[in-house]
Lab assay of single mutants.
Amino acid sequence: HSLRVHINGKDFEVHNADEHVIRALEELIRRGADADELKEFLERWKG
């Protein structure tokens, strides 16, 4: 899957995101994670 996440006016393109990554991202958003947390998660995932 390809996923586009809009954080703090920046678009993050997440390519080849598997279900696990997408679910983790949705969980963060549901918990009310702020932009920094989401960005950190995506950067860690992209490795």
Rank of each mutant, 00 (worst) to 15 (best):
H1C: 15
H1Y: 00
H1F: 00
S2D: 15
L3G: 13
L3I: 15
L3R: 05
L3V: 15
R4Q: 15
R4C: 15
V5M: 04
V5Q: 01
H6R: 14
H6M: 06
H6P: 01
I7F: 03
I7P: 00
I7E: 01
I7D: 00
N8K: 06
N8R: 04
N8Q: 05
G9K: 00
K10T: 09
K10E: 12
D11N: 09
D11G: 04
D11K: 06
D11Q: 08
D11C: 14
F12I: 07
F12M: 03
E13Y: 10
E13G: 01
V14Q: 00
V14L: 08
H15L: 08
H15E: 07
H15F: 06
N16V: 06
D18E: 10
D18N: 12
E19I: 14
H20F: 09
H20M: 11
H20V: 12
V21T: 13
V21H: 03
V21Q: 06
I22F: 05
I22V: 09
I22L: 06
I22H: 02
I22A: 03
R23P: 02
R23Q: 09
R23M: 10
R23V: 07
A24V: 08
A24S: 07
L25H: 01
L25E: 00
E26N: 09
E27H: 10
E27F: 04
L28P: 00
L28A: 06
I29A: 05
I29Q: 03
I29S: 03
I29K: 02
I29M: 08
R30E: 07
R30D: 09
R30M: 13
R30A: 13
R30K: 12
R31G: 12
R31K: 13
R31Q: 13
G32C: 04
G32I: 04
A33P: 05
A33Y: 11
D34V: 06
D34S: 11
D34M: 07
D34G: 11
D34R: 07
A35M: 10
A35W: 14
A35H: 09
A35L: 11
D36Y: 08
D36E: 11
L38Q: 01
L38F: 11
L38N: 00
L38R: 00
K39T: 14
K39W: 15
K39M: 15
E40G: 10
E40I: 10
E40W: 06
E40L: 10
E40Y: 06
F41I: 07
F41S: 04
F41C: 05
F41T: 06
F41N: 03
F41Q: 04
L42A: 03
L42N: 02
L42M: 09
E43W: 03
R44Y: 10
W45I: 14
W45M: 13
W45E: 11
W45Q: 12
K46N: 14
K46S: 14
G47V: 12
G47R: 09
G47C: 10
